[in-house]
Design a binder for these strands. Structure first.
Ligand SMILES: [Zn+2]
Length: 544
DNA sequence: CGAATTTGACCAGCGC
DNA sequence: GCGCTGGTCAAATTCG
């Protein structure tokens, strides 16, 4: 299966699969299978332009939609009238009927024209709004650049891509923070890592694959080790970003608490028991979860001494090929590029949750905003649930085997990512589609776990961060077969980006991310609270 | 021998 | 208050 899957991945854009080895035989527990999301990455083209185009296209689509609606009404009217006329036809002069029909026709036509005019007008308005938005966005970017990192802001770092290696060396790891300012950085990360990864290790990926690992970040291991060595000394630069909470009081605490509850789960189809996301994890527990035959494993980040980040790994009860990884918290230490994608994803998701789960009106606004924003797309890849215990964002990277095509329908959008390395094919597709919402098919927000409302969120209307994120995601996806992590991050970033205000730089926020290999993003409430105190399985891996 | 994993015990939150 | 469940701790065990 592995070989076949891998082959399929490379050649067919339809399905995304991770190169995995199903054979775990002979391995002792020491060997952990991992999924590599970022084995290889490439850079893509200018996200800005793409974005603009998308926006335009979007507006067009919207206009078209409205037009269609109106047309439908007209037609309906017409049909009705015609039917009547037909009925009346019997025994009455045809002339009168003709006249009447003509008059009706004229009326209808006039109506239609009026509708068209209206549509045109609406379109214009939309265009105007769009342009305004763009302007504001640019403005924001400019401001951000000035304020913080003059070097690279838009998240469209072509240069960075070009000399990804050098960049990496210069800025090997960045500190994760939720702040707006950092967002640009976050976005960049994926692309950087991807680029660097390309050069250093396509071949290596294969090796890893052979070794049954799925890795989110390619050179993760080596880098991690290096980093961990350094990180042990907390005195690094990240101190400044760190723990803003100390300075303040209630608000921060609340935020922190909220963030802690927030989880980001990533569902990925994978035989591998683990997803390598660039971080070092130590297993500290395993339990049987109620309602799921597969044990749940608990890991904590060991890249830095006091890193609060935890993750749970569990296989889906229904489909054991789906690996659900749930992340909580933010890293309080610098991360290697390889780890940035996932980290940013979870962080963004946490942010999103935070903003969305706010009990206040703010939360509602956010929800509405998101729903409105995401409108164009309708599928349910991203689900947000702010339900009670833990607001959770689920990124469902699992996709139904069939539906891996891009459907651009206005109402439904299923986005599937080619799993292989069809980077060549992707550029165009993603370049445009991505921005068009097609990428982030749907965002579901709900306060109820069971009945999540479905919202669609177009990435475009958010803010700069969104754009950056999207561009980064585009780049990563376009370039890489392992774009999932990037995708997830992008999505979450977008979602989370909606309400930067709520986000603090606290490291403490928790995000749960589940990644599936397929490519859908789903946010679900934490409904799976099943567990038994005793570990039921002998198996080392939580899903087996 | 150090590090990582295993796994039973322990604790906290929640519903009844 | 009690039991259930999720989550964490930490001693024991295993691995390299
Ligand atoms: Zn960490």
């Amino acid at each position: 299966m592995d070989a076949a899957a891998a082959a399929a991945d490379r050649s067919l854009p339809t399905t995304i699969q991770f190169p995995l080895n199903l054979n775990c035989s002979g391995d002792k527990r020491a060997v952990i299978d991992e999924m590599d999301f970022f084995a290889e990455k490439k850079q893509d083209d200018d996200p800005v332009n793409t974005h603009v185009d998308d926006m335009k296209e979007d507006s067009k689509n919207l206009a078209g939609l409205e037009l269609n609606v109106n047309t439908g009404l007209n037609l309906l009217t017409t049909n009705t009238s015609s039917d009547q006329s037909v009925v009346l036809d019997d025994g009455i002069s045809s002339n009168m009927e003709d006249k009447r029909a003509k008059s009706e026709m004229a009326v209808l036509q006039a109506e239609l024209q009026r509708m068209n005019t209206e549509n045109q007008r609406l379109r214009d308005v939309l265009n105007q709004v769009t342009s305004n938005y763009k302007t504001l966005q640019m403005h924001l970017v400019t401001i951000m650049q000035q304020d913080q990192k003059p070097d690279n802001i838009n998240g469209q770092l072509k240069h960075a891509v070009i000399d990804g290696k050098a960049e990496e060396n210069k800025v090997p790891r960045k500190f994760m923070d939720l702040g707006l300012a950092s967002r640009a950085t976050d976005t960049e990360e994926p692309s950087l890592s991807s680029s660097s990864q390309d050069r250093s290790g396509s071949s290596r990926d294969n090796v890893e694959v052979a070794s049954k690992e799925i890795v989110l970040g390619k050179n993760v291991d080596s880098e991690e080790r290096r980093i961990s060595g350094r990180e042990d000394s907390p005195d690094h630069g990240w101190g400044s970003n760190k723990f803003p909470k100390f300075s303040s009081s209630k608000n921060d605490d609340q935020t922190e608490a909220t963030m802690r509850k927030a989880r980001v789960s990533v569902r990925a189809r994978s035989e591998a028991p683990l997803i390598t996301d660039g971080c070092h994890w130590r297993k500290y527990g395993q339990k049987m979860a109620k309602g799921n035959p597969c044990p749940r494993a608990y890991y904590r980040c060991t890249m830095a001494a006091g890193c609060p980040v935890r993750k749970q790994v569990q296989r889906c009860a229904e489909d054991r090929t789906i690996l659900i990884t749930t992340y909580e918290g933010n890293h309080n230490h610098p991360l290697p590029p390889a780890a940035m994608a996932m980290a940013s994803t979870t962080t963004s998701a946490a942010r999103m949750l935070l903003s969305g789960s706010m009990s206040s009106a703010d939360g509602l606004m956010n929800s509405n905003f998101l729903s409105r924003t995401l409108l164009p797309c309708s599928s349910s890849m991203a689900t947000i649930s702010a339900s009670a215990p833990f607001p959770t964002v689920t990124l469902d990277l699992t996709q139904p085997p069939n539906s891996l095509q891009f459907q651009k329908p206005q109402n439904h959008f299923h986005l599937q990512f080619p799993n292989g390395s069809p980077a060549a094919q992707l550029p165009q597709i993603f370049g445009q589609t991505l921005y068009n919402q097609s990428k982030f098919s749907g965002l579901q927000m709900s306060q109820d776990t069971e009945h999540p409302a479905q919202l669609q969120a177009p990435a475009m209307h958010q803010t700069t961060d969104v754009l950056d994120t999207v561009s980064a995601a585009t780049a990563a996806i376009t370039a890489d077969p392992n774009f999932m992590a990037a995708l997830a991050s992008a999505i979450t970033s977008i979602i989370g980006g909606a309400h930067p205000n709520n986000i603090t730089n606290n490291n403490t926020s928790l995000a749960t991310t589940t990644t599936t290999s397929t490519g859908n993003i789903t946010t679900t409430s934490n409904s799976n609270n099943n567990s038994s105190n005793k570990v039921g399985n002998n198996s080392n891996f939580p899903g087996n």
